[in-house]
Amino acid sequence: MKTVIVRPERCVGCLQCRLACAVEHSESKSLVGALGESIPPKPRLRIYPGRLNYAFPNKCRHCDPAPCQQVCIAGAISREPTRGVIEIAPERCINCGMCAMACPFGVLVYAAVWQVPEKRAVALKCDQCPAREQAGRRPACVEACKVGALTYGDWQESQEEKGRALAQAVFSGLLAQPEVVPSMPETIRLWRQLA
């Protein structure tokens, strides 16, 4: 399954992903159009100040098994069979707050959406941009990220790649020639002897 992979160490906290996410989940799917919509679109990921106050992007991990799916009393949360993504059906959501109680990552927000304008609020979280994935494009947040903190791919492959990079760094460190300490020029040594 391809997912959005987060590398918090690269995040600079520019929040462009949030803007792109909100635009992608607006009715018009354009920044200018989104500004004029009666129900303002909400981003589905948040950037928190993490440990040492480095930026920490937090979004749905699409867990398997998903605790939110198990506690949903409305049957609104399901796993999309082909994409493997956990999705919330806004027309079934009853805004009860059970999913927030179950989610260990605190990714859920409750707000109104244009799909169901009659509802005060529904549970929202990352749906990994279904329209974009269908069209073979990357999710909006990944496209917006300029520093490679959000990438799109298979997480196992990404982990292997990270492992290889680490191994390479370790080996290149071991193979490096020991640094030669510059010795004092002969003339200076002799001059000091004289003095």
């Binding site: 918090p8 948040r46 950037i47 928190y48 100040p49 993490g50 440990r51 480095y54 920490f56 937090n58 990552f105 605190g106 990714v107």
Partner: peptide
Amino acid sequence: LPVDPRSPDFHPGKVWG
């Protein structure tokens, strides 16, 4: 815990970051 649950900083960033 990385952050005290009583603190106003108790949020996913401090817990999971």
